[in-house]
Amino acid sequence: MTMPRSLTAADVKEGQALPPLSHAVTATTVVLGALASRDWRPMHHDKEFAIHRNGVKDIFINTPNNAAWFERYITDWTGPKGRLGRMKFKMKRPVFPGDTMVFNGRVVKTFADDAGCQWVELEVTVSVDGQVNTECQARVAIPADEHDNPWQRKANGWRP
């Protein structure tokens, strides 16, 4: 594998859009994500349970898998030196098999903290059929320049 280039501070501007990502969700998508995250709760693999106990139409993507999708979307954009510091999301509607998830993102703010860490704040959404299902705010550190690497920051040098 060759090392992909990582974004640096000079590549990122406030208001910049991230490239969209589209993924067709199947029951396998939901179950893969639930089992990978060791989430054995039945609403993520048992359709009858989801309908009759949760009152929804099908099994749906679970919380930690939602987070893993956001991480993948963000670090696809930053490259491997992008280091997540903080992530917050709100699931407004579940994502079901048969849905096509569309990820969109936007740079809200860029700044360097007192330790010299270069941060990018992002707003990311997952939409299905043009409706926002999940909203996410994330803070990711990127290299200040070609010589910097946020993964080398420790203790007081890392202030997410």
């Binding site: 903080r86 992530m87 997410p160």
Partner: peptide
């Protein structure tokens, strides 16, 4: 679970 926030350290 309706919302989730995580802060990551080491």
């Amino acid at each position: 679970v309706s919302g989730n926030e995580a802060v990551f350290g080491e």
